[in-house]
Design a protein around this nucleic acid. Structure first.
Length: 891
DNA sequence: AGCACA
């Protein structure tokens, strides 16, 4: 019905397109969206009065066009459902390819001229009965390209040299084009030389296939590609370590060039000297040089992979250089012992099952190198394994045993054998299950063992309920080296116990006592004895004015103070405190509900070097306060004004803080795009922006951020019904983006997310829950390009089995929430789960539980994956309970 | 609603 009587055509005709979208963007998005159906030869869109809102997409095959007509019919694209039919006539690009092209009268001459210029050796196009380049692709014809003269025609090479590209060509565009051909490895563009590129294939047969298929392909009508084999050049050794401009190696782009050169070097050596023993260019480099290269890569997986393609021994050398290891499963550990000889940081937090044997093996393998170990998510070992570990690895400086619910005092005794320990983490478990929160049975009896450690600097005893005043008062010795103690949630503790514990701890710099003792003048007096104390965190403690006033009267100057949820804090106290501690850098007064603008006046007047101010939900503070902050605290790097009266005037002032890196504006209902535009102009260093439920923000504001904040790493725009794909397309310019939260944005579609997937290769966390318009079309580019994705929430999206399977191709994926996916079947789920080796946490609806074969759970669990079953019913609306009612104030 | 290749 929709395609009417029009016969199938390899070109499709699209209408009802959003006319507001600029032509170039429209074409790019169409290309991205439709290339899933096959090779696209051309996208045509015009903005003339008669032709706006329409486009033609020419595919290389009719079936591709047919699939696109069927599957993309009515797809919501920039807010409008696309209407698709076959085109009524043949596209020029196809006519040109099959020789039937007859130029239109007017421009006939120009056309012919252009045609002749492009392939002067060929017969005139109208007589080109000798077929197309695509169809007779089996024989590699000798091509003529661009400016390269005929006698220079290079010998076959697995690397292709592309010329005559439009200057705005991105490597992404070329990747989309060339990856269709088997053996594709990668595209390299040299920023300094626009218009050319190198495309690498596995061998020269494959590269010549691609060359034939794409020879003359027009990215724009003026730019038929000219493809030749890259020349094999030999450069000398010194050149291999500097780029062409002679600069020393110092950035990733240059590194890439470096390995290209190395690769050539290898080929040269092979050609010159067929002796197989002398073919590894790494033999020329000392290990130190390769180590230096590795240090430059900063663990970037893409560069590493690129380097590895130079030579197998890259990974061998890398393994000797590697210091940190985070294995996926404990059963893989024995393999790593052989390979990695000098591991100093071992993170076992992905291995849920670590037993005493594992610990013993670790302690033998890395006896002399191990300095830190993270066992915070591991179970199945006992104090015996710990003792083996610490007695073998005498260099251990840091141990993380957080969440160790089964650990007892005998474990602490074992730890005390780690004589060089500096950092010990023993935080209680928080989220192993949602119900039970265990805690470590550490008491003062074992604390004495730990405090005897001569080098201990950081001691984290959060939530160790076994510690109380009585026990502490019996300890009359103190660890002199200790710099930081965290005794948060130790509820039986008061200043009395503290004073005996810390008696003489002259090195103590930071004390964290969240949810602990009352802040009285006695406590303040006790703390004032620590001459080095610079930072105190008293979050959630009961504060008294006398306590705060005596902290204010200390002689030593504090740089960090944290009073979040200290509801007793008053303007008078805080102003006095600020006046006496003018050096304050970090202040947290989150949820201090008595605070008004008077406090902010005091703080901004006294503490002008403030770098961090957190004041979420200080609901009595009026909007003028934010103007003061912007005027006086220009050193600010971190500002949290979530759920405050911030407005555009305030943001305008705040935008003067040019060092700002983190800005949290969640639930600031009075601000609009105008304010964000100021932020985009002033805060170019911004890395983190939280706009959760900012109802006044639209695409215009987000575009300003995408444009002005290229360093952005995290953005939250959750629950914003005005945001569309336009925002995501502009955010895709932020290539460092790691965390994207767009939960509950119903107008964002696969188009927007696809452009993020393709441009933001660092993306590691993605929340698109309740983005009903996002479907499989976005999952395919995610699976293909977002190889750093570790966490995804897809609940309520229009994703089906096929989409989920694409996502689970990402082998870094750890954490997946997939509730209420309408198109997910048990079979699709099973396939997806089995595809993804690294999953450690999957949230699913309980209805799936009986539908999968039991062996799948057994298998997944044996690999360390935990299933979380949820029972919540499907919620039709995005915001079923009307959160604003809960908030208790109007929007 | 509208079928072109600047």
């Amino acid at each position: 019905m929709l395609s009417g009587d029009i016969p199938p055509n390899q070109t499709i005709y699209l209408k009802n397109l959003n006319e507001k979208i600029k032509k170039e963007e429209l074409k790019r998005s169409l290309y991205a969206l439709f290339s899933q159906y096959g090779r696209i030869l051309d996208v045509v869109a015009l903005k003339t009065p008669r032709l706006r809102g329409q486009a033609w997409i020419a595919f290389s095959e009719v079936p591709a066009a047919s699939n696109a007509v069927r599957q993309m019919q009515n797809f919501p694209f920039y807010d409008k459902p696309i209407r698709i039919q076959y085109a009524k006539t043949k596209s020029d690009c196809i006519a040109k390819a099959d020789g039937s092209f007859v130029p239109r009268d007017k421009k006939k001459k120009q056309e012919e001229k252009a045609e002749r210029k492009r392939r002067p050796d060929d017969a005139p196009p109208s007589a080109a009965a000798n077929g197309t380049r695509a169809e007779n692709g089996a024989t590699p014809a000798p091509f003529r390209q661009g400016n390269t003269s005929a006698q220079e025609a290079a010998a076959p090479n697995n690397i292709l040299f592309i010329e005559n590209l439009p200057h705005e060509t991105t490597s992404m565009m070329l990747e989309l084009l060339f990856q269709q051909y088997p053996g594709f490895r990668e595209v390299r563009i040299i920023e300094a030389k626009p218009g050319i590129a190198f495309v690498e294939f596995e061998d020269d047969v494959q590269s010549s296939m691609a060359m034939q298929a794409l020879q003359g392909f027009k990215i724009t009508p003026q730019n038929p590609m000219a493809i030749t084999f890259a020349k094999k050049s030999s450069r000398n050794f010194t050149k291999t370590l500097s780029n062409e401009s002679g600069k020393p190696i110092g950035c990733k782009e240059e590194m890439k060039e470096c390995y290209v050169v190395m690769k050539r070097l290898k080929k040269d050596i092979e050609n010159r000297d067929p002796n197989p023993n002398m073919t590894n260019p790494f033999d020329i480099f000392t290990d130190e040089i390769v180590y230096a290269i590795l240090d430059h890569l900063h663990g970037d997986p893409f560069s590493k992979r690129s380097f590895s393609s130079v030579c197998k021994s890259f990974y061998f050398i890398e393994s000797r250089h590697r210091r940190a290891l985070k294995p996926l499963r404990s059963d893989l550990l024995p393999r790593t012992f052989r390979r990695y000889s000098s591991i100093s940081h071992l993170d076992l937090s992905l291995c849920s099952l670590v037993d005493d044997n594992n610990l013993a093996a670790v302690s033998v393998a890395w006896k002399s190198t191990l300095r830190s170990i993270n066992l915070s998510r591991s179970r199945a070992f006992s104090s015996i394994g710990l003792l083996t570990l610490v007695s073998n690895c005498s260099g251990l400086v840091e141990i993380d045993l957080s969440n160790g619910t089964e650990l007892t005092d005998s474990a602490a005794k074992a730890i005390a054998e780690a004589r060089n320990l500096e950092i010990l983490r023993l935080s209680r478990c928080k989220s192993i299950t949602d119900i039970g929160i265990g805690c470590i049975a550490i008491t003062e009896k074992c604390l004495s063992h730990i405090l005897q450690l001569q080098h201990l600097e950081d001691l984290i005893l959060e939530g160790c309920h076994g510690i109380d005043d009585n026990g502490l008062s019996t300890l009359n010795h103190t660890c002199k080296s200790i710099k930081m103690i965290n005794m948060s949630n130790c509820q039986s503790l008061s200043y009395i116990g503290l004073s005996s514990l810390t008696n003489g701890a002259n090195s103590l710099e930071q004390l964290i006592l969240a949810n602990g003792p009352s802040v009285t003048s006695d406590l303040a007096k006790c703390l004032s004895q620590f001459s080095s104390l610079r930072s105190i965190k008293l979050d959630g403690c009961l504060v008294t004015c006398s306590g705060i006033n005596s902290i204010a009267n200390w002689s030593a100057s504090l740089v960090e103070l944290s009073f979040s949820k200290c509801s007793g804090l008053t303007d008078e106290c805080l102003c006095f405190l600020a006046e006496r501690h003018k050096e304050l850098r970090k202040l947290d007064i989150t949820c201090c509900r008595k605070i008004t603008i008077a406090s902010i006046e005091g703080i901004t007047k006294s503490c002008t070097s403030l770098t961090s101010l957190r004041m979420e939900s200080c609901s009595l503070v009026s909007k003028e306060a934010f103007v003061l902050i912007g005027q006086h605290c220009q050193m600010l790097e971190d500002l949290d004004v979530t759920d405050n009266e911030m407005d555009d005037e305030g943001l305008k002032a705040i935008s003067r803080c040019s060092r700002l890196q983190s800005l949290k504006l969640g639930i600031c209902l009075n601000m609009t795009d105008e304010g964000l535009i100021h932020v985009g102009r002033g805060c170019s260093k911004l890395k983190e922006l939280d706009l959760y439920r900012c109802a006044g923000v639209t695409d215009r504001g987000i575009e300003a951020i995408g444009h002005g904040c290229p360093a952005l790493e995290m953005i939250n725009i959750a629950y914003n019904s005005k945001i569309t794909d336009t925002s995501l397309i502009s955010l895709s310019k932020c290539s460092s983006l790691k965390v994207l939260e767009i939960r509950g944005c119903p107008h964002i579609s696969s188009v927007g997310l696809s452009s993020i997937a393709m441009e933001c290769r660092q993306l590691s966390e993605l929340d698109i829950k309740k983005c009903f318009n996002i479907n499989d079309n976005a999952m395919h580019p995610l699976g293909k390009f977002s190889q750093n994705l570790q966490q995804i929430n897809l609940s309520y999206c229009s994703v089906t089995d096929a989409g989920l399977l694409s996502v689970t191709r990402i082998n870094r994926l750890r954490n997946m929430t997939i509730l209420h996916l309408s198109g997910l079947t048990p079979n699709g789920l099973a396939a997806a789960l089995l595809t993804c080796g690294g999953l450690t946490k999957v949230k699913l609806h309980s209805s799936f539980k009986p539908l999968l074969p039991q062996y799948i759970y057994k298998y997944m669990e044996s690999r360390g994956c935990v299933f979380h079953w949820r029972n919540k019913a499907f919620q039709e609306e995005i915001d079923p309970k009307g959160w604003q009612l809960h908030l208790g104030r109007p929007s």
